[in-house]
Nucleic acid binder design. Structure first.
Length: 400
DNA sequence: CGAGATTCATGTGAAGTATACCTTTAGGCTTAA
DNA sequence: AAGCCTAAAGGTATACTTCACATGAATCTCGTA
């Protein structure tokens, strides 16, 4: 591309008016002024957490619901209001929000407590300290608050799956030793049956109160989208039917509002990039592909080397009708030799397959082939359009 | 022919090891009085 | 003498390995009809 051409492109970009009035309204972290269709839940949460304003410990709270049903946004919404009121009333109240899914941030006991302590302003090294030492620091900073601390643990199911439920138990018991402060837990889970596999003691203490977030239906998603679109876009840039289509797509997937918003935003971005001044229906389809692709690529990029190599082995077997752990491991060893990396044992390899499965990149289910043993049947859950790009990235970063 | 034993390939749990990183401590060096 | 830096010691979490045992249905075995 010649220089003049590039400059021409920039000029065109600047001349072209953006379709967006305020893009951040469509971002998933955005907390709107008004939350539609969640009045019941919000009232309940507010009622349960309200004692915090009188410096009493609120009940621990447990929120269930599929992804994109507004759990997180409702909690954040209430957190904002609560902290606001607390500040004006001079009540010492602290709300900590932490997403447990974040790998290498909050997926073990140590890391979780360390992160919480950091949030309260005391730095904790990533490793090296005894866990009870970290607990002590945590204790101290909590005690310094001299008030109620509400800890919101988003995607708590992920944490428990990886690190066990003692953490929660410990957290609920911390209160017994606190003199000047109290902590209350708010657990958020996408997994509806998660609590059933919990230690009964933990379960009873965590879910003193429970609130279920039902999925939105297509109509509700539409109103949500409309509300946000009005703020996010300039007048008349959305073709008729686009909002309905986004809502329909999302409703198909258990009423995931987050997904609907993302679809709308990405569709508009694509249209804008192509210099259109109208977001037409076809961009919604493109957006769906792009979102899927970006999500996969993001996950893949951030994997550690060994996981990448594991995934690459599976990719190169993806032509085969059935992939079994043993076969994948053979291929994996070959690649290890090629890039002169010391291969992991099959034991660990098996665990990594399990981890990749949890991430939703692959699908691995344990089957018994009777006389021919027991193994995992592995398949990729990467779409056709995305696979080449994924392989490319793996190849690049692995230098195969 | 059918119930029970066998078998295979790998899942899975527990315990041990290597590595990277933390704090503490002791010793040595510098500095200022 | 006090202050500062460095290196070693002692300790931890995490990722991984080693060892050992568990799994579960296709297949085999063998007694019975």
């Amino acid at each position: 591309m010649s220089e003049t051409k590039i400059i021409g492109l920039f000029e065109k970009f600047l001349k072209k008016e953006s379709l967006f009035e305020n893009k951040s309204v469509l971002q998933s972290q955005h907390v709107p002024e008004e939350l539609s269709h969640r009045d019941d839940q919000i009232d309940q949460i507010a009622a349960i957490l309200a004692p915090a304003l009188r410096n009493d410990k609120p009940s621990n709270l447990f929120l269930y619901g599929k992804t994109g049903t507004g759990k997180t946004v409702a909690t954040k919404y209430i957190s904002q209001k609560l902290t606001e009121v607390a500040r004006t009333q001079g009540v010492p109240l602290k709300i900590l929000y932490l997403n447990c899914k974040l790998k290498r941030v909050a997926d073990t006991e140590y890391r979780l407590i360390a992160e919480l302590t950091r949030m309260l302003g005391k730095n904790i090294p990533f490793t090296g300290l005894p866990t009870d030492e970290v607990y002590n620091s945590f204790f101290e900073v909590i005690e310094q608050q001299k008030g109620v601390v509400i800890i919101v643990l988003d995607e708590i199911d992920q944490l428990v799956a990886k690190a066990g439920d003692d953490i929660i138990y410990n957290l609920t018991r911390v209160n017994a030793d606190l003199k000047h402060s109290q902590i209350a837990l708010v657990g958020i889970s996408n997994d509806l049956i998660f609590a059933d596999n919990l230690d009964p003691r933990v379960k009873s203490s965590l879910s003193e109160e429970e609130i279920v977030f039902p999925p939105y239906n297509a109509l509700q998603i539409q109103t949500i989208l409309k509300n946000r679109a009005d703020k996010a876009f300039k007048l008349d840039v959305i073709a008729p039917g686009v909002i309905q289509k986004c809502a329909a797509y999302a409703a198909r997937e258990h009423g995931d509002a987050r997904r609907a918003l993302e679809l709308l935003r990405v569709a508009a971005e694509l249209a804008e990039r192509e210099g259109q001044d109208l977001v037409s229906l076809k961009y919604v389809d493109h957006a769906e592909e792009k979102i899927e692709k970006d999500r996969m690529l993001e996950i893949v990029k951030t994997q550690p080397q060994q996981h990448k190599l594991t995934l690459y082995s599976i990719c190169s077997l993806s032509e085969a009708p059935k992939i079994y752990t043993g076969d994948a491991y053979e291929v994996y060893r070959e690649y290890c030799k090629q890039v002169s990396m010391r291969p992991l044992t099959q034991r660990r390899f098996s665990d990594i397959i399990g981890e990749l499965d949890m991430l939703g990149i692959i699908n691995a289910k344990v089957i018994s082939k009777g006389r021919y043993g027991r193994t995992r049947e592995i398949s990729l859950s990467i779409g056709k359009h995305t696979l080449p790009k994924v392989e490319e990235i793996l190849k690049e970063t692995l230098m195969v």
